[in-house]
Design a protein around this nucleic acid. Structure first.
Length: 332
DNA sequence: TTGTGTTTTATTGCCTCC
DNA sequence: GGAGGCAATAAAACACAA
């Protein structure tokens, strides 16, 4: 590990965000040297609640947050508590968290200047700000993964339902065709008995079941009604356009892909607006348009493409390139 | 009150970038 | 080689049921 100082100044050495921070938290895991603090303190104090030095508390607040704190929890008791519980850590105050949340909404990465600024405004160590942002990013990522999972699950369920509907419809059509074929054969037979000299029709050389199979298969190969696209083929039908809605509507627009330059065919899919990529895990899914999955080719199978791209690392992880190759699986 | 599960704060080690 | 990011993890703080 790179030598990293955890004196809360190690990250900043900036002088504690302008509030005269001298203290540092001491935990069981802390290295002894890490626990001592920086210059200038007459207290061998380690640990604090909110990592605020006693000097701060005695001198009075330098920020609105400190004022609030002092007003709310004023008194010797607090002071004693600080003094006699040197190893306790304290959660940030609600208004501090709120402030940080707002800042996080604006930008979830923290530039050094902003870190210092926030530290000053909140009366915290820059290191604490950095840690808070890091933990906050981790929480955000976890939430996104959960969302991704829900989206995938719902997508899967919709596709499965569509597939089952199609199977039913196929069976229904098949029996209809069978029925009609029977009638046709019957008709031909009757006709044949009255006109024995006529030439043979195709239906005379095929059984009704064969005709039904033939008709159904032909129909399927031409129309491709629903479901998920076979990569590389083009077909869609408005026939099921109103069947599936809502899946992606609850996702925000950021769910709509970021392009992966590494794969042109998928780029095309994405550019045509047929696919989208989930934000955290990078799953590639068929995009629902006007309430329908626009892609399908082949009634009995579905393709779920995966896109091994970690968007969270876009900015700094070149090594991801090998993982950018899309892959997928079929289910039926 | 206490046991237990969850959340938050912080550290550690590894990795990448410059 | 330092800075900063992330994953994994520890541990304190907190919530809550029994």
């Amino acid at each position: 590990m790179a030598a990293r100082s955890y004196l809360y100044g190690g990250d900043s050495a900036v002088g504690g965000g302008g509030s005269g921070f001298n203290s540092v938290m001491l935990t069981n895991k802390s290295k002894p040297l890490d626990s001592f603090f920086v210059s200038g303190s007459s207290h061998a104090f380690v640990g604090s609640r909110s990592m605020v030095s006693f000097e701060d508390k005695r001198k009075g607040p330098s920020s609105p947050f400190f004022r609030t704190f002092d007003q709310e929890e004023n008194g010797d008791d607090e002071y004693d508590e600080y003094f006699h519980n040197p190893e306790k850590k304290r959660r940030l105050k609600a208004d501090q968290v709120q402030f940080l949340e707002k800042s996080f909404e604006t930008e979830n990465k923290l530039e050094p200047e902003r870190k210092i600024q926030l530290a000053k405004e909140l009366g915290l160590q820059p290191r604490q700000i950095a840690i808070w942002f890091q933990n906050r990013r981790a929480r955000w990522k976890t939430k996104q993964l959960e969302k991704d999972y829900d989206v995938l699950l719902e997508s899967y369920n919709q596709l499965k339902a569509n597939y089952e509907n199609l199977l039913q419809e196929k069976e229904k059509l098949k029996s209809e065709v069978l029925d009609l074929s029977d009638k046709l054969v019957l008709q031909e037979t009757e006709k044949g008995s009255s006109d024995s000299s006529s030439t043979k029709s195709p239906s005379e050389s095929l059984q009704p079941e064969q005709i039904a199979d033939y008709v159904i298969d032909e129909d399927v190969s031409k129309t491709s009604n629903v479901g998920v696209k076979t990569v590389g083929s083009e077909s869609s039908s408005p026939r099921y356009a109103d069947r599936t809605q809502s899946l992606l509507e609850h996702g925000d627009s950021s769910y709509l892909f970021e392009q992966d330059q590494s794969d042109e065919s998928l780029d095309e899919e994405v550019n045509l607006g047929k696919m989208f990529v989930t934000p955290v895990s990078g799953y590639m899914l068929p995009k629902i348009e006007n309430g329908a999955y626009p892609e399908l080719d082949g009634v009995n199978s579905c393709y779920l493409g995966f896109h091994g791209h970690d968007h969270d690392h876009d900015h700094d992880h070149d090594h991801d390139h090998n993982e950018d190759q899309p892959f997928g699986f079929w289910f039926n």
